[in-house]
Design a protein around this nucleic acid. Structure first.
Lengths: 248, 248
DNA sequence: CATACCTTGACGGTGCGTTAGCGTAA
DNA sequence: GTTACGCTAACGCACCGTCAAGGTAT
């Protein structure tokens, strides 16, 4: 039986952190009857260690609960793999930033006034490089050029709106699934039409781009999974759309 | 002359971001007389690009203003170097986390139940390694062991308290400096005494540790500068203490 | 008149640090 | 009684995303 302070000292965390974990329901100690004082015991120690480890690995506190109580390792391993990808992407981010700084320093040693042009060029290059890199391999050269051309016209806000439209559509489809709606019915066809609309917004009706997209989706399990929430489309949803679009 | 939306589209940022930069005083556009509408012009574009670049490099928005208006490159280069160190440290952090995940996965492939022991061990190892690594080179082997032993007893809260005591002391010394207090006077001696007290709290009066510390401070310009605020002690302060402690 | 775009608040999210005000244990 | 420790509540930080309520341009 430890008090907060003792327990915190033993575990190498602060009292405030323990309060926080308690609030989040991650680690709820016993309470002394009248006073409400927290009372920690040995099993709590093990659990806290697990929390600390997961935090060290960069896993958000809010996602930890299921991992801590899971009796089997499968979801833990899943989480680790996800986290691995997230961290890896962050690292390449960092690497590019570092590279940019180095290049910029070189440029700065030559002139006394900051040469923002060189500077911004470097960064832009790198940014583009990163963003498009992972999708590249799916497109033919001609398709790449076309996609690139479209990118130029995309404002980030347009991006947002489109993303929202997709998520809304997916939500609607999930509702339809829950209602056991028939893909061939009117409602199903309407959803499929919205789907194709959105898709056309990206491909511009270009078959080469469509091809590339197809390849990309076929390889979905291997997508990177960065901070940019590449929207997760449940398999059931795509199945529904496929069913709606295939002619009988 | 662009409206927010146009300008945002041209620059590849969101309208909200522009609002935000405006609020922070980073990029204040003209305003249309009656309506208060924001009006951006070409010079604003250049400035925005600079902001975007610095953000890409991970520099906090609040620190950007002086860098943007600085006519000469010197403080920009300073900032870049600082940022380089910060990023580099973050990267090693990431690397260790990634390494930990890999090791953990290996451990997990063998058992089905999560083996938290192996797991926490790995992380602890690595954490220690990191924390002490950069100070290591200043200490003799014997001193290292002693410092390590002391570390074990330090709770993070004790850490905090000590840190605060140092910052308070430093603040007090700066006040004394402002008053042009004499280091040899009573006030100066009192401050020096507090200094030695705090130091003794770390060294435990051990000469080997003291030696290592001396070497470390002598090498101060080369310290890493992570997120962990290694307290910055102005040169004037150390000078004051040195003057107070050297026997006449 | 409708519609698209502008404005200024203000809340939310991440992981706690940091007062602040107020009971409790030794 | 004093002092050290416990509790909850609430703000703060970084960078905007995301409504919301209400004017303006076309």
């Amino acid at each position: 039986m430890y008090t907060v302070r003792e327990f915190a000292a033993r575990a190498g965390v602060t009292v405030r952190a323990l309060h926080h974990y308690d609030e989040l329901g991650l680690l709820k100690p016993l309470r002394k009857p009248q006073t409400g004082y927290r009372l920690y015991r040995d099993p709590d120690f093990a659990r806290l260690e697990q929390i600390v480890v997961l935090k060290f690995l960069g896993i958000p506190l809010k996602e930890m609960r299921p991992l801590l109580t899971a009796p089997r390792a499968s979801n833990l391993r899943q989480a680790l793999r996800r986290q691995q990808r997230v961290l890896a992407e962050k690292r390449t981010q960092l690497d590019t930033a570092l590279a940019a700084i180095e290049r910029a320093e070189q440029a700065l040693t030559q002139t006394d006034a900051p040469d923002w042009n060189v500077f911004t060029q470097v960064v832009k290059e790198i940014e583009m490089h990163n963003e498009t890199e992972w999708t590249k391999k799916y497109y033919s050269d001609k398709a790449k050029a076309k996609v690139e051309a479209r990118r130029q016209e995309w404002t980030p806000e347009l991006q947002e709106r489109v993303t929202r439209q997709w998520t809304e559509l997916i939500a609607d489809i999930e509702v339809a699934l829950a209602k056991k709606e028939n893909p061939k019915g009117a409602a199903g066809q309407a959803l499929a039409a919205r789907w194709q609309q959105l898709l056309a917004g990206f491909t511009g009706g270009d078959p080469e781009i469509q091809q590339g997209l197809n390849r990309m989706w076929a390889d979905k399990p291997n997508w990177p999974e960065g901070e940019a929430k590449s929207f997760h489309i449940p398999a059931a949803v795509t199945d529904f759309i496929v069913a709606a679009l295939t002619r009988t």
